[in-house]
Nucleic acid binder design. Sequence first.
DNA 1: ATAACATCTGAACAACTATTCAAGTGTTCA
DNA 2: TGAACACTTGAATAGTTGTTCAGATGTTAT
Lengths: 121, 121
Amino acid sequence: MKGKSDENLQCDCTIIHADIVDRVREKMPQEEMLYDLAELFKVFGDSTRIKIIWVLFEEEMCVCDIAYLLNMTPSAISHQLRVLKQARLVKPRREGKNIFYSLDDEHIAEILNQGMSHISE
Amino acid sequence: MKGKSDENLQCDCTIIHADIVDRVREKMPQEEMLYDLAELFKVFGDSTRIKIIWVLFEEEMCVCDIAYLLNMTPSAISHQLRVLKQARLVKPRREGKNIFYSLDDEHIAEILNQGMSHISE
DNA sequence: ATAACATCTGAACAACTATTCAAGTGTTCA
DNA sequence: TGAACACTTGAATAGTTGTTCAGATGTTAT
């Protein structure tokens, strides 16, 4: 059932069928979609941001509190909160001088849980 | 119910209770766990690797086929497959000159699906 | 208005990352 | 054996990223 199927192949090793090539190209999401997906996971790809998310699972919190809990500077936390906010993972709420951040997506827990399942196998 | 609760706080804005601090510290996974989690998501945080995973959803494939489908050099693909392999997301199978890669984890689809759900909101 | 505080911002720096290129290993087949 | 092929590897490069620092913005209370 296997054999060369496309004259435009770049190497001789290619033994996949033309229909598989078609099927992959058909099912594969748009380039932009895949890029956005990678951008989203990039946000999860930093332990500081993971920690911030974890803290916010417990309760909404202001920048200084998060900084205190994670033993980091408010500036560093603020920079990371901006990244999380741009990814629409957290949202701010001003209350006087403080700005309270909370999680803004119901998929976050599931994504993290699946990740946890993978690494603890 | 809110008020200053910890003398070791780094800033005056901290209004969270000591019990919340304790609860967060208690529920938060180990430092190493959070680091590993970030490392895992870092792997998903590159569109080339996302594409490779997507191609492998369809069928196991050799390096050259993946390179052809993604219009990249086999070398670049090989480098990324190494990252995916180290994260235990894909596994190799040699068949003569070719090395076929396939997905090695049942959580991958769920993680990607949750990610897709988030960005297409 | 001024002071004090919480947060944000931009520049700078070191650390990391993806791709390319050239050279290497391992396999098949004549 | 040796040529051809599939794949890997290491060094080099440009590009990206997280934290720090200094200074700016916005809010509150006096």
